[in-house]
Structure formats: structure tokens, C-alpha cells
């Protein structure tokens, strides 16, 4: 990382001013700048082009760029706000903003809903839930019989699908999360609380 690379000169596609991003997100300008350092690192890890490709996200999350993972796919999809197949800096900061400990709960609840609504139908359906449970169990090597998985999905719908129409809508989801706030604890990244504190290295790039 060259010390002379100042934020103002190396414009990359999708670069946005930290001040602008700071105004839209819970991050301070300095924090957006710190995130830019992280973004640069991630976006050059596989393809040297300054945008994050799916492989690069997978590499960062799992240390394996060829891993297939349902949830990482969904995360990538949601971060890619413009739906152009890559994550640009502005998208990266805005999406991470949702994971900030002080981001509004509604945003987190909505983000989780979109994440779980695999087919983007506006509802979380039984099949989607089942698919997620299967994916999860597959990753964790937890072998449960189909019957047990069915029982878990049934229980979930009994609890969440308060209207009983066989699908979970945003309203039901919101209501359920309100009662079980820990369900969206995965929507908060404590790391974002104070980026400069946790990652002093981001703010003082090495001089060499």
C-alpha cells in the first residue's frame, strides 16, 4: 500500500466522497476513510480492479474464494445494490452501515428479511426456510433426518406465521423479531462500533 496514494487521487469506479457516505450512514468521515482502506484491501485481493467480486467476498469470509455458500451469495446480492455483479465502495459502506451497532433496528430487521427471502417474492416461504436450514446443517455437518428438519420448520411457522397463510410476510417477521431481538444479533457487527479503535492500522497506513 503506497503511502502516497491519497484518497482524492485514486478514483475507482463507484468511489464516493466520505463526507457524503458519512451523512447517509452511522459512520464518521474518518471511519468511512478507514473502511476505504479495508475496501481497497478486499477489492484487490483476487482481481486488481477496485470493486469487490464474489470471489473476493468469499475469500475474506471463508479464506476460500471457490466456496459455494447460500448465505454468502445472499449477502453479496444484497450488498450489490445496483445489481451489476460487483460491490462498489458506496454500496459497501451503505450496506455495512446496516450492521453498525447504532444503526436503526428497523433497517436490520428489513435487511434480515430480504436476506431470508431467497427468491425475492416479498415473503419467506416454507421452501426457502427449509433450504436455508439444509444449507446450514450441511455446513455444520449436522445430519438431521428429514422428519426432524420438517419439525423445525413446522415449529418456526407455528411461531412466526401468525396469520397462518403458510408464508411469512414483513409484518409477521417484524413482530416476531420484536419479541426475540436476539434473532437479528447477526445483523450487528461489534467490529463496526469504533473502527479506528479496533483497527488503528487502517487509519495510519504504513509509510513504506
Amino acid at each position: 500500500m503506497g503511502g502516497c496514494l491519497s484518497v482524492n487521487v485514486d478514483r475507482i469506479p463507484g468511489y464516493e466522497e466520505p463526507a457524503l457516505l458519512s451523512a447517509e450512514t452511522p459512520f464518521s468521515v474518518r471511519e468511512v476513510e478507514a473502511l476505504y482502506e479495508l475496501f481497497k484491501k478486499l477489492s484487490h485481493s483476487v482481481f486488481d480492479d477496485g470493486v469487490i467480486h464474489k470471489e473476493e467476498l468469499l475469500l475474506a469470509l471463508f479464506r476460500d474464494k471457490n466456496k459455494t455458500n447460500l448465505f454468502a451469495d445472499r449477502i453479496f446480492d444484497l450488498f450489490d445494490l445496483k445489481q451489476n455483479g460487483v460491490i462498489e465502495f458506496g454500496e459497501f459502506v451503505r450496506s455495512l452501515g446496516v450492521f453498525h451497532p447504532s444503526a436503526p433496528q428497523e433497517d436490520k430487521v428489513a435487511f434480515a428479511f430480504r436476506l431470508y427471502d431467497l427468491r425475492r417474492t416479498g415473503y419467506i416461504e416454507r421452501e426457502e426456510l427449509q433450504e436455508m436450514v439444509l444449507a446450514l446443517l450441511h455446513e455444520s455437518e449436522l445430519a438431521l433426518s428429514d422428519d426432524l428438519i420438517q419439525a423445525i420448520v413446522d415449529k418456526t411457522f407455528n411461531e412466526v406465521d401468525s396469520k397462518g397463510d403458510g408464508k411469512i410476510d414483513q409484518e409477521e417477521w417484524k413482530e416476531f423479531v420484536l419479541k426475540n431481538p436476539s434473532l437479528i444479533k447477526n445483523m450487528t457487527l461489534p467490529y463496526l462500533m469504533d473502527i479506528s479503535l479496533a483497527f488503528p492500522s487502517f487509519l495510519s497506513p504504513s509509510e513504506t
Binding site: 455458500n69 431470508y116 415449529k155 447477526n186
Partner: peptide, 11 residues
Amino acid sequence: NAFQLIAMSHE
């Protein structure tokens, strides 16, 4: 609850 299972996973 399946959502709890998802929330606790490292995925």
C-alpha cells in the same frame, strides 16, 4: 426455531 438456528450460525 429455524431463524434462531440461522442467527447463531457462522454462515
